[in-house]
Nucleic acid binder design. Sequence first.
DNA 1: GCATATTGACAAGTATACTTGGCATTCATA
DNA 2: TATGAATGCCAAGTATACTTGTCAATATGC
Lengths: 71, 71
Amino acid sequence: MDNRIRILRAEKRWSQAELAEKVGVSRNSINSVENGKFDPSLTLAFRIAHVFGESVDSIFDKTEAVADLDQ
Amino acid sequence: MDNRIRILRAEKRWSQAELAEKVGVSRNSINSVENGKFDPSLTLAFRIAHVFGESVDSIFDKTEAVADLDQ
DNA sequence: GCATATTGACAAGTATACTTGGCATTCATA
DNA sequence: TATGAATGCCAAGTATACTTGTCAATATGC
């Protein structure tokens, strides 16, 4: 799933390891989510949004998730 | 995780089975998410938000998810 | 009352998010 | 140089989202 994590992280000048520590997951998880290897849980999405002071909807791109829903 | 699915579903007069069919998961999954038995994936959260025409952040309550993040 | 729809719940299996640990590459800087 | 920080990636294990199938309890309509 596309997301703005890398950009937001650059603005804050946080490494993947720093972000991982802030939201309480492993660096590998941040790396995998950031690179679209797998989607975060809703809980992790909320935690990432929280530390950046943004909404889940503004950080993660729902396009692929809802692509097949429109009648 | 607290959420407004039951209320939104009542407004639309959709059964759990109807909502499940719309978002492409089993009725058991909707029932479990609605009753807080487990949290939805971010993808499912987006799909639920989409069929109700709302945002993920407005439907799901992030309070528990971010409870331990504030320094 | 009777039939049907809806919901809550459980068990067992599958898919996937997430962990730990490690290794290679790149970049900055001493 | 060389040393460390940051990133990408892989493998194997654990945790949990989600499925199918089923049953009981409750509501709703005839």
